[in-house]
């Protein structure tokens, strides 16, 4: 199982990972050997086997949807970890380009 350079670039884009052209060969080699190994699973016929979807034997654990707030020290620490801020707000680059067409 080997991946093309184009596939490596596509996956990196999906994963929002900047990779350099010179790293592509290493990804091809290392990911290729892992994908080759996991091909092993295709030996098994699993047509009638259910997927294991829940590791815990519980699903749909519900609670009231209530605003609980948090202590001011916790809030302050969370805000202090922001990379860039204006007052208490997280400041980011524009999500949508300014297009008028």
């Amino acid at each position: 199982m080997s991946l093309s350079n184009e596939e490596i670039r596509h996956i990196a884009k999906l994963a929002r990972l900047h990779i350099n052209e010179e790293e592509i060969e290493d990804y091809r080699e290392k990911l290729g050997s892992i994908l080759e190994y996991v091909e092993k699973l295709q030996e098994l016929n699993t047509d009638d086997v259910p997927e294991l979807q829940h590791a815990a034997d519980v699903s749909n654990v519900l609670r009231e949807d209530e605003i609980q707030g948090c202590e001011s020290a916790v809030r302050k620490r969370a805000i202090d970890n922001f990379s860039n801020r204006e007052g208490d707000l997280l400041k980011v680059q524009a999500v949508f380009e300014d297009r008028t067409e």
């Binding site: 996991v38 699993t46 086997v49 294991l52």
Partner: peptide
Amino acid sequence: DAYYRKALKVRSL
């Protein structure tokens, strides 16, 4: 399907 779903089935086994 070929990878993730398959792996979840094998996990059941």
